[in-house]
Each structure stands twice: as structure tokens, then as C-alpha cells.
């Protein structure tokens, strides 16, 4: 553990170098970390941070959960039905090729500013990688597994889900980062509250440390969500790792 932690020496060193370089250069757009942290503490003390943080996180969680559930369900369904898969395959390929950011102005027409747009953007961004990976995983299930399930009267869908799980998780892992990206861009584009909106305000009033506070917060969020997901994945796929390693 300590040996592994030792390899992390570069992170504090990099932070220190950032502090020293920006301080001595007096770079306006790159404030030293100490200034950013001070601004963050000040914002936490004087402003209602929860009013921006809570909507952002709630939309992120709800949007991701909706899209992940729909993506897994649809993907497994399409993966098990060759006919259905053939019918919708061109649309799936096209749908996932559309850069989700390009749909923001379209969503602005069909949904109200605020939560509906954010949710639509997150769902659209998350849906495709989950769907495509689930479809791929469910399509290639060993027929021996299915036969065995039939002999033992196990429900078929459970076997399919278990066999497709590694692929499903690969899609979900991608989707966590995408959900955060879609949250940020949709809030930067059209929102009246949230982290992204707060950053636009900081940009408008040329409050560079506050802008960086947003960047740092989103960065920490990205790292934490990624770590959280990896931990869940490791637990959920423990049986799989054990099997393949043996």
C-alpha cells in the first residue's frame, strides 16, 4: 500500500510546481492553487453553494440512471433478437454518431430551459455507449450457458445478464465520464443554476479564481465518480475476475 502510494509523489510535486510557477509569473488566467482554494472557501462561506451543487448532482444521477437502465434493457433485448437488431441497427449507428452537443439547440426548442434540457442531454449522451456495449455483450452469450440454464430451470435472462455483465460494465464505465461532460456542457449552454451556470457567471464577471473553482470542483467530481464506479465494478464483477484469472 505504502509502496503504491509512493508512486503518487508526482501529484503534490506538480501542485507545488503549479503554485510556484504561477506565483512568480503572476499569470492572470492561471491563479495559483492557494488562491483557488481560498476563493472556494470564501464561496462556501458566503454563497449558497448547495443551490448550484444539488441540482447539478441530482440531474447527473437521475439522467445517468435513466439512460443506463434504458440502455442496458434495450441493448440486451436487441442483442438477443437478431431480427430486431437488424431492424434498428442503422438508426443506432446514426444516433450514436451525432455529437450530443449538436442536439443542445434542438433540445432547447423541444424542452424548457433548465432541468428538462440537462436531463435530455445527459440521457442522450449516456444512452449510446451503454446500449451498444450491452447489445454486443448479450449477442455473444455461450450457447452452453443457455443450455445449462435450461437444464437446471434457471431463468434465461439471468444467465444472459451475467454473461453480458463485463461488456455492460465497460459501457457503463465510459458513460460515467460522458454523463459528467454532458452535464457540464448543457449547463454552460442553457441553465439558470448549477455548476456550469455558476462558471458562466464567473466568466461574465471575469472572476478567474471562481471560474477555476468550478474547474477544480468538476475535476474532483470526475475523479471521485470514476473511482466510485471502479469500486462498484470490482465488487460486481468479482466472480468474473476470479474465473478468468484461474
Amino acid at each position: 500500500m505504502i509502496r503504491r502510494l509512493a508512486w503518487y509523489w508526482l501529484i503534490p510535486v506538480a501542485a507545488l510546481a503549479w503554485e510556484v510557477v504561477t506565483r512568480s509569473a503572476g499569470a492572470v488566467y492561471f491563479p495559483p492553487p492557494s488562491t483557488i482554494l481560498a476563493r472556494m472557501r470564501e464561496m462556501a462561506a458566503t454563497e449558497d453553494v448547495a443551490a448550484d451543487l444539488v441540482p447539478s448532482l441530482a440531474r447527473l444521477a437521475v439522467g445517468w440512471a435513466l439512460a443506463a437502465a434504458a440502455g442496458v434493457a434495450l441493448g440486451v433485448l436487441l442483442g438477443r433478437s437478431p431480427l430486431l437488431a437488424k431492424l434498428v441497427e442503422p438508426m443506432v449507428h446514426f444516433g450514436r454518431s451525432v455529437p450530443p452537443a449538436a442536439l443542445l439547440p434542438v433540445f432547447l426548442v423541444f424542452f424548457k430551459v433548465g432541468t428538462p434540457i440537462q436531463l435530455a442531454a445527459i440521457v442522450y449522451g449516456v444512452l449510446w455507449p451503454v446500449l451498444v456495449n450491452s447489445m454486443d455483450g448479450a449477442r455473444h452469450v455461450d450457447t452452453q450457458y443457455l443450455d445449462t440454464a435450461q437444464v437446471f430451470h434457471l431463468p434465461r435472462w439471468r444467465v444472459v445478464l451475467a454473461a453480458a455483465a463485463p461488456k455492460i460494465f465497460a459501457g457503463l464505465r465510459l458513460s460515467v465520464a460522458l454523463a459528467l461532460i454532458m452535464m457540464v456542457i448543457s449547463e454552460l449552454y442553457a441553465s439558470s443554476e448549477g455548476i456550469g451556470h455558476r462558471m458562466r457567471e464567473a466568466e461574465g464577471s471575469v472572476d478567474i479564481p471562481a471560474m477555476w473553482a468550478g474547474i477544480v470542483l468538476l475535476g474532483v467530481l470526475g475523479v471521485v465518480l470514476n473511482g466510485l464506479f471502479l469500486a462498484v465494478e470490482r465488487r460486481a464483477l468479482r466472480w468474473h475476475r476470479g474465473r478468468t484469472a484461474a
Binding site: W7, I11, L188, I215, L218, G219, G222, N226
Partner: peptide, 21 residues
């Protein structure tokens, strides 16, 4: 081995949050 943790740490930062900057 030294750079990898730093890279793994920086990578999940959503790049679009840098648009205002």
C-alpha cells in the same frame, strides 16, 4: 510508474469545463 497516477488523476477532468478558460 510516476507519471501514470498523475495522468489517471488528470484524465477524468471533463475537458469541456475548460471552455470558459
Amino acid at each position: 510508474r510516476s507519471v501514470r497516477p498523475l495522468v489517471e488523476f488528470l484524465r477524468p477532468i471533463p475537458s469541456l469545463s475548460l471552455i470558459p478558460l
